[in-house]
């Protein structure tokens, strides 16, 4: 598959994504919403990975976004649509502050701390009973955004995905691409090219965290409730990670194809082996890391190279 073929495929998915509500029923729309939500998270995870930083904190920032959205509606009477923007801003600000502390860390130390942060946020919300509703969570009394209209909810998630896609393309086509790639390759030689490493890492961390928060806001507004266990679920970290790894990292297209494949597979597996589908996820992660560390993109490239008569 060459670049053109993958462009055509991407365009087809784009057309499908935009026309789906006009002919699909509630169940396919619900599945598509799920896939798009995880796809957007997978893209943001990959965006930070392009700097070499492996974050396990997606669920943490997603959850922060979810709670800031729902609490701003319930406690401050903010309009639902505005609370979603507020979620993005709030998660971005949180990332900015903790970025100063944790972006000095590297490799597994960074990863472990991001994992711990998500847990810390969850525990705080668990225990601020009066404000957050504690372990039982909170419910929006006036109901779900758009009165729960399936089509409108679909458009909302698609808009969230569009934000992630736009940000990812911006990262790919601008100076940011050069900065993050240089940092990932070798931080010392990046500095010698005039790159202020901390500044670019902070930018990437804040932008990806804000989008994760935005998606948390969209999630919580489309279900109308939040509990710590639901919005800080490890699924929001692990599934996007598996999708990006499967599709191929350091790109926008990899997470997209990974999300579609794993999303559809998991929906099917859920029906066949309830709960067992997570085992399959784990197996996929292991297989991908062992045999194709650059994901399906690499596999596809290799085969198309040999088809051209060139060696891989």
């Amino acid at each position: 598959m060459n670049r053109n073929a993958s462009r055509i495929l991407a365009a087809l998915f784009g057309v499908l994504a935009v026309t789906l509500p006009f002919f699909a029923g509630d169940y396919p729309l619900q599945v598509a919403r799920n896939i798009m939500m995880y796809m957007a998270l997978a893209i943001t995870w990959d965006m930070l990975l392009r700097s070499g930083q492996i974050s396990f904190g997606i669920a943490g920032l997603f959850g922060i976004g979810a709670y800031s959205a729902i609490l701003s509606v319930i406690r401050a009477g903010m309009p639902a649509w505005f609370s979603i923007l507020f979620a993005a801003i709030f998660s971005g600000v949180v990332a900015f502050v903790i970025g100063f502390l944790i972006l000095r860390l590297r490799a597994m130390y960074f990863s472990i701390v991001t994992l711990a942060l998500g847990e810390i946020f969850r525990i705080i919300i668990h225990n601020l009973h009066d404000f957050t509703g504690g372990p039982e969570g909170v419910v929006i009394q006036k109901g779900v955004i758009f009165g729960g209209n399936a089509n409108s909810l679909y458009w909302l998630v698609l808009a969230g995905l569009a934000v992630a896609l736009a940000a990812s393309f911006w990262f790919e086509k601008s100076k940011i691409h050069f900065a993050l790639t240089a940092i990932r390759n070798n931080e010392i030689s990046a500095q010698s090219s005039g790159i202020d490493i901390f500044r670019w890492l902070l930018l990437a961390f804040v932008v990806t965290s804000a989008i994760q928060g935005l998606l948390g806001g969209i999630f919580v507004q489309s279900y109308g409730f939040a509990t710590p266990d639901a919005v800080f679920s490890a699924d929001f970290t692990l599934l996007p990670l598996a999708m990006a790894l499967l599709g191929g990292v350091y790109s926008t297209t990899g997470p997209i194809f990974g999300a579609i494949l794993l999303g559809l597979a998991s929906e099917w597996l859920k029906l066949k082996i309830p709960y067992g589908h997570l085992v399959v996820y784990g197996i996929i992660i292991v297989i991908v890391i062992l045999f194709m560390p650059q994901g399906l993109r690499q596999l596809v490239r290799r085969t198309s190279h040999s088809a051209d008569g060139r060696s891989a």
């Binding site: 050069f178 900065a179 790639t181 240089a182 390759n185 070798n186 990046a190 090219s193 790159i195």
Partner: peptide, 17 residues
């Protein structure tokens, strides 16, 4: 810099320095 071509490698200093 892997994932960057020869010319892109050379561009980095120009962009950031």
């Amino acid at each position: 810099l892997e994932n960057l071509t020869l010319i892109e490698n050379v561009m980095v200093g120009s962009i950031f320095a």
